[in-house]
Amino acid sequence: MDGTLQEFVVNNSDVIIKNWLEEVTEKRKSDYTSSISTELFQSTNREFVNVIFSSLDKQGLTTELDDFSERLINLGWPLSYLTDGLQTFRRVTIDFILSQSEKIETNHFTNVLEMVDNWVDPIINSLVNEYSGNWEHTVSLQRVALQELSAPLIPVMKNITIMPLIGTIDTERAKLIMENLLEGTIKHNAEVVLIDITGVPVVDTMVAHHIIQAAEAVRLIGSTCILVGIRPEIAQTIVNLGIDLGKFPTKSSLRKGFEKALELTGRKITRSKERDQTIEKMMSSLEEG
């Protein structure tokens, strides 16, 4: 920025800041910042405008700007707060300079626009890049977390694992299910894998095809797959679609599927007489009390 113009702006920073604060406060009545507390809004605005003038004093972008934008990102403030605020600041500054043009050497509107743009534009670009990079990083982390949660394989007992599925199954998720199923079956040395579709809202031809493929893949590596969570409406849909699920066991509930898994691994559920007697004594004591 031109030295004379910069000095004029700095010397009149109080007026420019006052005008800017009045405008953003007026806008607040009808935009997304209306839900933010007045104290936080005002303190953030003061810090924001101080950062802007700091970049002017230091002839460029500053670590204060990076720190400020990072804090806002972590607090969940939208990028539009910064971009709208800077655009308002640009307009307020230009209007003030032109209104005081008789006090400074420059009288050319174009020169004023260019000098203020050269001050404000790099700040906008830096903030947009900062937000974009942070957003991409956050989305990447969320995608990884979602993938880990979308097809978990849980070892519940020696040689028995369960994969609970919740939500819609598309082609990408079906691929992930297949990968996790095979890797987990080998890792946990699972003889039986239960795929629980209780939380899958719709089982159409594509979903059934993916499940059959997964079960067949498990069979090829020497394990057994049991499909559990077959609700009546899903059973009817499967029959109407003519889908053959006869190649592997199916059960209506996870409990029944687990009992079948115990049977396939040479185990069964038995009741303990000592435990039953202990429970009876506890109940009797409670009734007497």
Score class of each variant (00 low, 15 high):
residue 110 T to N: 10
residue 82 L to K: 00
residue 248 F to I: 03
residue 162 I to P: 00
residue 164 P to Q: 02
residue 203 V to C: 02
residue 33 T to L: 03
residue 5 L to Q: 08
residue 33 T to A: 12
residue 21 L to E: 10
residue 258 F to S: 01
residue 92 V to C: 03
residue 191 E to K: 14
residue 101 S to V: 11
residue 273 K to E: 14
residue 229 G to Q: 06
residue 211 I to A: 05
residue 248 F to D: 00
residue 12 N to K: 03
residue 39 E to P: 02
residue 123 I to S: 00
residue 278 T to P: 00
residue 273 K to I: 13
residue 93 T to R: 00
residue 105 E to F: 10
residue 163 M to Q: 05
residue 239 V to Y: 04
residue 73 I to D: 03
residue 101 S to Q: 13
residue 4 T to Q: 13
residue 190 A to H: 02
residue 82 L to N: 09
residue 143 R to D: 12
residue 67 D to S: 13
residue 135 W to F: 14
residue 284 S to R: 14
residue 91 R to E: 14
residue 115 M to Q: 14
residue 32 Y to W: 14
residue 94 I to W: 04
residue 178 M to R: 04
residue 222 G to A: 05
residue 266 G to R: 03
residue 133 G to D: 11
residue 264 L to H: 03
residue 245 L to W: 06
residue 21 L to H: 06
residue 220 L to R: 03
residue 229 G to I: 01
residue 264 L to G: 03
residue 244 D to H: 07
residue 260 K to L: 15
residue 216 E to H: 14
residue 240 N to C: 00
residue 130 E to C: 12
residue 277 Q to N: 12
residue 223 S to P: 01
residue 19 N to V: 01
residue 81 Y to H: 06
residue 63 T to R: 10
residue 102 E to G: 04
residue 39 E to S: 11
residue 162 I to H: 00
residue 101 S to F: 11
residue 176 L to R: 09
residue 171 T to I: 05
residue 172 E to L: 13
residue 179 E to G: 03
residue 10 V to Q: 11
residue 95 D to W: 04
residue 171 T to S: 15
residue 19 N to C: 01
residue 112 V to R: 04
residue 108 H to I: 12
residue 210 H to I: 07
residue 80 S to D: 11
residue 191 E to M: 10
residue 71 R to V: 09
residue 145 A to R: 09
residue 275 R to L: 15
residue 76 G to K: 04
residue 8 F to R: 07
residue 280 E to S: 12
residue 275 R to T: 14
residue 279 I to G: 07
residue 153 L to R: 01
residue 230 I to R: 02
residue 98 L to F: 07
residue 188 H to I: 03
residue 214 A to L: 02
residue 217 A to S: 14
residue 256 K to M: 08
residue 186 I to A: 15
residue 206 M to T: 10
residue 134 N to G: 14
residue 123 I to M: 12
residue 288 E to T: 12
residue 129 N to T: 12
residue 241 L to A: 09
residue 230 I to Y: 03
residue 43 S to Q: 13
residue 98 L to V: 10
residue 158 K to S: 15
residue 229 G to Y: 06
residue 91 R to Q: 15
residue 147 Q to M: 11
residue 235 A to F: 07
residue 130 E to M: 15
residue 247 K to M: 15
residue 179 E to F: 05
residue 110 T to M: 11
residue 170 D to N: 13
residue 97 I to W: 02
residue 199 G to K: 07
residue 205 T to P: 02
residue 51 V to N: 01
residue 68 F to C: 00
residue 101 S to R: 13
residue 7 E to A: 13
residue 9 V to T: 03
residue 124 I to H: 01
residue 238 I to H: 02
residue 154 I to R: 07
residue 210 H to L: 04
residue 90 R to L: 07
residue 184 G to S: 12
residue 178 M to H: 09
residue 197 I to S: 02
residue 134 N to V: 01
residue 53 F to S: 00
residue 288 E to F: 08
residue 182 L to K: 02
residue 111 N to A: 11
residue 136 E to F: 10
residue 26 E to V: 07
